[in-house]
């Protein structure tokens, strides 16, 4: 049912994006580019969760890569060491980060102020140390080898186009679920907290509870992404799950804009594209190393915060909106004038 006066999910947007995702592999020439596009999907899942947390619960997490790592390592250990099916370990890869987020959130006095940023920062460091040092389980800094592939009724998802579609199926699911949350009573409650916490609590909104729930959801999404990452690669190592990673996710959300789900998606795609471009340059020009990438992200973060605090996506959407409306009006006006002269200005 079409309702007036409330934000609603645009199925058109989702349909257009799905079509784009479906045809993208045919436009990419090399298998390296398909791998990059697959990574973009994995990052999108983490970024959408973090975007919900930042844009709707007003909290910052500096430990999102650690949740991503908990998801990846829990499935790696369960499937490779204990022989569990990847589909069963998916549940653990979601539940373990959720449980950690629940405990972290509770100890942080139900997420008041900026304590969560500090707590997740510390948590990220702890996880990184654990992954490196707990060699009995994680095999230490050299990485964990021999992670099995995901199978589905006899079909094996190997790196390449099939894995790309698997990842983006999850990413689209995560996007739709997040849009549903935003356009529900919970989403409105979260948006209201952002504008006036005192008014929303006097409307009966338990602000701490919803901040906590979004934090848990963001950890779950990161866990799903970790699961996808682990089974895509034959091996994983702690380096992918450190503070660098968390800041990369943060940059995606800030760059794209956290006030809409599409902002986080846009940011994840853009950063992946920039990173691929810089790496391609690096293979030709010697001074462009991986450190150069970090400097670049820092610079992007700074520039966006100064010039486009809302992020790129809302800025672009605001520019595009009048154009789309103009096009729509022209079409409509055309239809009406065909029947009868129209008074519309």
């Amino acid at each position: 049912m079409k309702r007036k006066g409330i934000q609603q999910m645009s199925w058109k947007g989702i349909a257009a994006f799905t079509v784009l995702i479906l045809i993208l592999p045919f436009l990419l020439s090399t298998s390296l580019m398909i791998t990059k596009a697959t990574f973009a999907g994995i990052y999108t899942i983490v970024a959408v969760g973090l975007g919900l947390l930042m844009g709707f619960a007003g909290q910052i997490s500096l430990g999102q890569a650690a949740f991503y790592g908990v998801g990846a390592y829990s499935t790696a250990i369960l499937t490779a060491t204990f022989g569990l099916s990847p589909w069963l370990s998916l549940l653990i890869a979601i539940a373990a980060p959720a449980l950690i987020a629940y405990i972290l959130g509770h100890t942080m006095a139900r997420l008041h102020g900026y304590y969560l940023a500090m707590a997740t920062l510390a948590f990220g460091i702890v996880i990184h140390v654990l992954l490196v040092e707990w060699k009995g389980f994680t095999k230490g800094a050299s990485g964990f080898y021999g992670i099995p592939k995901i199978e589905f009724f006899g079909f094996t998802f190997t790196q390449g186009i099939s894995y790309y579609y698997l990842v983006w199926a999850f990413a689209l699911l995560v996007i739709v679920l997040s849009l549903n949350i935003i356009h529900s009573r919970i989403g409105r409650a979260l948006r209201s907290i952002h504008d006036s916490e005192v008014a929303s609590s006097s409307m009966g909104v338990d602000t701490g509870r919803y901040k906590m729930q979004v934090f848990i959801i963001s950890a779950m999404f990161a866990g799903i992404a970790g699961w996808l990452f682990a089974h895509m690669s034959y091996s994983i190592s702690p380096g992918s799950f450190g503070l660098d990673g968390s800041i990369l996710f943060l940059t995606m959300v800030v760059l794209g804009g956290s006030t809409s789900v599409w902002g986080a998606v846009f940011g994840a795609l853009l950063i992946t594209a920039i990173s691929s471009f810089v790496q391609a340059l690096g293979s030709k020009i010697s001074f462009i190393t991986s450190d150069f990438e970090h400097v670049l992200y820092g610079l992007i973060l700074m520039l966006v915060v100064i010039f486009l605090p809302q992020g790129l996506f809302p800025a672009i959407a605001a520019k595009l909106k009048p154009l789309l409306e103009y096009a729509g009006r022209k079409k409509k006006a055309g239809n009406i004038t065909a029947v009868k002269g129209d008074q519309r200005a």
């Binding site: 007036k4 006066g5 409330i6 934000q7 409105r188 209201s192 504008d195 006036s196 008014a199 929303s200």
Partner: peptide, 11 residues
């Protein structure tokens, strides 16, 4: 203390 960035109905 209205929720400024929400519509009247959403408020």
């Amino acid at each position: 203390q209205v929720f400024k960035r929400m519509t009247v109905l959403e408020n």
